[in-house]
Design a protein around this nucleic acid. Structure first.
Length: 594
RNA sequence: GGGGGUGUAGCUCAGUUGGUUAGAGCGAUCGCCUGUCACGCGAUAGGUCGAGGGUUCGAGUCCCUUCACUCCCGCCA
C-alpha cells in the first residue's frame, strides 16, 4: 500500500462506507463551525469532504491550517445523511471522518485565491502560474490539451504517418518571421536559429523516402503576440506526404479534424466536407482570408452604382473616380431597428479609424426609396440595381464603405464581424471549417513595389509548368492553401515545388539570383536535385485547435506556462541577463540601443 | 514602432463636480458558533491611490511625462 493514499479525491462512493482510507491533497476550502470542521480536500481528480469534530485531539491544529496546504488525511468513510448529500461533487454521498492527519506541504499566505471564480490580472496569474494551474477551468484546459495531442498522435499513426523529430538548433532562414538566434561556442561569431517551422526538414524527410511524416513540432518566431498568438513559441501538427495532390492532403486533414472535433466537443460541425473558397473570392465576400462562416453576412461590390448619373452621393462618386471602390453589407429585415443601432455601427467604424459606414434602409411605400442619412442620394432605379447586385429586399439595410481595396477589405471584415455580433447572427455552438485555396504565388510589396512571394516560396505553381506566363507573375496561382475555423486561421500548407529549375525561376522573379538561392537554401535545393518525390503537407496549430475546443479566446488559457505579451516568463524570469563569463565564452558582448 | 483600455489593501473592486480621517467583499489574525458545502456572526491589522512632475488654498479625482499589464494595427513566408 502506498504511504500517501489509498484512494484519490474523486474515488470514494457509498460502497466504501466504513472503510479506513487515506487521502492526500490540497485544502480547497474549510468551513469551521467551532465544534465541527469541514475540509474539502482536492487533488487532480476531484474533491472529497472531510470532517472532524472537537472531541478529536487534532481539531485545534487542523482549524488553523492554511488553505492550499497539502495534507494527508487518514480516517473512515462515512455515509452522509440524506439532507447533507452534495450533488455538485462526485463524492457527495460520503465524507471522510478524520482520525489523524499529516502536513505534507505547508502553504504561506496566498497571493491569489485558488478556490474562486474571480478573474485575476495576467501579471499575478503568470507569476504564480503553479497556483493558477490548480484552478478548475485552466486545469481542465491543460488536461484537454494533453488528451487532444494524444488523440491526434494516435490517429496519425492509424493513418500511416511516422513521427520524427527534427533539429531545434538549425540555421537562420531568410524568408518569413524574425528568427531566435543561439550563439555557437564552437563556431565563434556564428549562430544557430530556432526553427520557425520544420519546413525544410520535412521536405528533406520526403526526399529521404519516408512517405508520410508528422510531428507535434515546436515552432519559434520572434514576432509580437496577439490573443490567439503566443509570443516566441507554439506547436504545430506538422505533416508532409509524398506523391500527393492537394486533395489528398485535404482528405487526411478533414478526416482528422472532424474526428478530433467530434471527440472533444459537443458543438456541431457546419460542414464535414469543408467548403473550398478561392483566396480572391474570400477577400471579396468576407474581406479576409480567414472568414468566419458562422456569420451569414456577405460583402458585395457596388462600385459601379457610383458611376451612375442618378446617384448623387458625391463624396463616394469622387473617390470612385480616383480609384476607390464601394462595397457593402446587407442586413436582413432591419427596417425597424432603432436609429441608435445604425449610429452605433457608424460610430464604431469611425473608432476603427475608418471614415464611418454610410447606410440606408430600403423601403417601399408606393415606390422604392431609401431611408437614412444618405438615402436621398439614390434614385429608385439605382436602388433596384443595388438590390439585384446584393440580393437585398425591401426592409433590408445597406452599410457601405468606400476606400482603396485593402483598407476597404480591412474595415468591412471587421464590420461584418461587428454587425453579425450586434444582430446575434453567429451561432456559438457551431464549428465552421473551410479551405482557402488558390493563393497567388507572388504579390507586390506596397512600399517597395517589388514582386515578392506572397506565402511560401517552396509552393508549387498551378497548371502546366511548361506554360506558366512569367511575364505576369501576379497572375500565377499556387497550390497553397489555408484551413480556417470560425475565423481562426489554423494552418497553411502547400504542394511543394520539388523541381530545382522551377524553383530558381520563381526565386528569380522575387529577385533572388541562382547563387543566392544556392546559398540560402543549399540543403534544400541540393536535395531536390537527387530525385525528389512530388510532395505536400500542412501544419495546423495545436494551440489554436485546443483553444477552439476549450472555447477560449486567449491562447494563454490553453498553454501551461505562457509568456506575457512582451515575451517574458514572469515566473522563471526569462529572458534574463547572463554573466560576463558566459558571454566571453560565446565571443559576445552586449551593446544596448539607446 | 503606433493606437485604445486598465492600474486604489495580499486578491477582486467602489470612490460623485477637485473638498473632512480613502471604503466594501474575499483573504489574514483573534474570538464565538455541531451539518456546512461561496457556512454564519463579531473584532483587529492591512494603503507610496503604479511612479515622477505640474496646476490648485486643497489632487485618488485635472494636466504632462513615464512604467506595468492587456487588446488591436504594423509584424507573423
Amino acid at each position: 500500500m502506498n504511504k500517501y493514499r489509498t484512494h484519490n479525491c474523486n474515488e470514494l462512493r457509498k460502497k466504501d462506507v466504513e472503510n479506513k482510507v487515506s487521502l492526500s491533497g490540497w485544502i480547497n476550502k474549510k468551513r469551521d463551525h467551532g465544534n465541527i470542521l469541514f475540509i474539502d480536500l482536492r487533488d487532480n481528480y476531484g474533491v472529497t469532504q472531510c470532517i472532524i469534530n472537537k472531541e478529536n485531539s487534532n481539531f485545534t491544529e487542523l482549524e488553523k491550517i492554511q488553505l492550499e496546504t497539502v495534507l494527508q488525511i487518514n480516517g473512515k468513510v462515512i455515509d452522509r445523511e440524506k439532507e447533507t448529500i452534495n450533488n455538485e461533487i462526485d463524492t457527495g454521498e460520503i465524507e471522510v471522518s478524520i482520525e489523524s492527519f499529516e502536513i505534507l506541504g505547508s502553504c504561506k499566505e496566498l497571493p491569489m485565491p485558488v478556490f474562486s471564480d474571480q478573474e485575476y490580472s495576467e501579471e499575478i496569474r503568470l507569476k504564480y502560474r503553479f497556483l493558477d494551474l490548480r484552478r478548475k477551468k485552466i486545469h481542465e484546459n491543460i488536461i484537454l490539451r494533453s488528451k487532444v495531442i494524444s488523440f491526434i498522435r494516435n490517429e496519425m499513426n492509424k493513418l500511416g504517418f511516422n513521427e520524427f523529430q527534427t533539429p531545434i538548433l538549425t540555421s537562420s532562414s531568410p524568408e518569413g518571421a524574425r528568427d531566435f538566434l543561439v550563439p555557437s561556442r564552437l563556431n565563434p561569431g556564428k549562430f544557430y536559429a530556432l526553427p520557425q517551422a520544420p519546413q525544410q526538414f520535412k521536405q528533406l524527410i520526403m526526399v529521404s523516402g519516408f512517405d508520410k511524416y508528422f510531428q507535434i513540432a515546436p515552432c519559434f518566431r520572434d514576432e509580437d503576440a496577439r490573443a490567439d498568438r503566443s509570443p516566441g513559441e507554439f506547436y504545430q501538427l506538422d505533416l508532409e506526404m509524398s506523391f500527393v495532390e492537394q486533395e489528398d492532403v485535404f482528405n487526411v486533414l478533414e478526416k482528422l479534424l472532424v474526428k478530433t472535433f467530434k471527440e472533444f466537443s459537443n458543438k456541431k460541425l457546419m460542414f464535414e466536407k469543408f467548403p473550398k473558397i478561392p483566396y480572391f473570392e474570400s477577400l471579396l465576400k468576407y474581406g479576409s482570408d480567414k472568414p468566419d462562416l458562422r456569420n451569414p453576412l456577405i460583402i458585395n461590390d457596388i462600385t459601379e452604382i457610383f458611376t451612375r448619373s442618378d446617384v448623387t452621393f458625391e463624396i463616394f462618386k469622387k473617390l470612385v473616380k480616383a480609384g476607390s471602390q464601394v462595397r457593402c453589407i446587407v442586413t436582413k429585415n432591419t427596417k425597424d431597428k432603432p436609429r441608435s443601432f445604425f449610429d452605433n455601427i457608424d460610430k464604431w467604424a469611425k473608432d476603427q479609424g475608418a471614415s464611418g459606414l454610410a447606410y440606408f434602409t430600403i423601403e417601399k411605400d408606393k415606390e422604392i426609396s431609401a431611408k437614412g442619412p444618405v438615402g436621398k442620394f439614390f434614385s429608385k432605379e439605382s436602388l433596384v440595381e443595388i438590390m439585384k447586385k446584393t440580393n437585398a429586399n425591401i426592409g433590408d439595410s445597406i452599410f457601405m464603405a468606400c476606400n482603396k481595396q485593402k483598407d476597404l477589405e480591412k474595415i468591412l471584415t471587421l464590420a461584418r464581424d461587428k454587425i453579425g455580433k450586434d444582430l446575434d447572427l453567429i451561432d456559438d455552438n457551431v464549428f465552421a471549417f473551410c479551405w482557402i485555396v488558390d493563393y497567388p504565388m507572388f504579390e507586390k510589396d506596397e512600399q517597395t513595389k517589388q514582386i515578392k512571394f506572397s506565402h511560401n516560396p517552396f509552393s508549387m505553381p498551378q497548371g502546366d509548368i511548361k506554360k506558366i506566363n512569367y511575364e505576369k507573375p501576379l497572375d500565377i496561382l499556387a497550390y497553397q492553401y489555408d484551413i480556417v475555423c470560425n475565423g481562426v486561421e489554423l494552418s497553411s500548407g502547400a504542394i511543394r515545388n520539388h523541381i530545382p529549375e522551377l524553383m530558381y525561376k520563381l526565386f528569380s522573379i522575387a529577385g533572388y539570383s541562382k547563387n543566392q538561392v544556392d546559398q540560402k537554401f543549399s540543403g534544400m535545393i541540393n536535395a531536390l536535385s537527387y530525385g525528389a518525390p512530388p510532395h505536400g503537407g500542412i501544419a495546423p496549430g495545436i494551440d489554436r485547435i485546443v483553444m477552439l475546443l476549450a472555447n477560449e479566446k486567449n491562447i494563454r488559457e490553453v498553454t501551461m506556462f505562457p509568456m506575457n505579451q512582451n515575451a517574458q516568463d514572469l515566473m522563471m524570469n526569462a529572458p534574463s541577463m547572463v554573466d560576463e563569463n558566459q558571454l566571453k565564452e560565446l565571443n559576445l558582448s552586449v551593446k544596448l540601443k539607446k
